[in-house]
């Protein structure tokens, strides 16, 4: 099966029901995307599929054939993603860092869809879990991005 990941087409040998996360990490060695709960509950495995945030642990690969998948490794090739990472550095968001690639994905997908999200938009989109409790730093960074002049 052919999967387009970070603008590169990979020929993957796996069953159609294999979770995308397994293929990304085990077959392709892109380990920036993390395994958290395996049940779409925590968001650590978030990637973007055609720009929409998607939990790769519950995404069978045959459902994303022919679509463009973006992982954390290529997030800075996206202008919005680049700014998100810059703000993440500026606000020193990560602590242990395990959930952060998912957090960056969620923030990037939000800002791609809504340039100037409201508090409610942010609350609805930023639902990934963080065991360290970096929520305040995430909130500050996203709020900064949300208020950027001319949109993010």
């Amino acid at each position: 099966m052919k999967l387009s990941i970070n603008n590169e087409v990979h020929d993957v040998e796996a069953d159609g029901d294999t979770p995308l996360l397994w293929v990304i990490r085990d077959n392709l060695g892109l380990t920036g995307t993390k395994y958290g709960c395996g049940l779409a509950q925590c968001g650590a495995c978030s990637v973007m599929v055609d720009g929409v945030v998607t939990r790769s642990c519950v995404t069978p690969i045959d459902s994303v054939e022919g679509r463009e998948i973006t992982t954390i490794e290529a997030i800075e090739n996206d202008p919005v993603g680049k700014r998100v990472v810059e703000k993440w550095v500026e606000y020193q968001v990560p602590q242990c860092g395990y959930c952060q690639s998912g957090q960056v994905m969620a923030a990037t997908a939000l800002l791609r869809e809504t340039q100037n999200p409201t508090e409610d938009d942010v609350a609805a989109a930023m639902v990934n879990l963080c065991r360290c409790g970096t929520y305040n730093a995430i909130h500050a960074a996203v709020k900064d991005l949300a208020g950027e002049k001319g949109g993010a």
């Binding site: 159609g16 029901d17 779409a40 939990r55 519950v58 995404t59 069978p60 045959d62 459902s63």
Partner: peptide, 14 residues
């Protein structure tokens, strides 16, 4: 995330 914003699930798996 599983059942889709469109409610259609994911192929026959979900």
């Amino acid at each position: 995330f599983c059942h889709g914003r469109d409610g259609r699930g994911k192929n026959e798996w979900i």
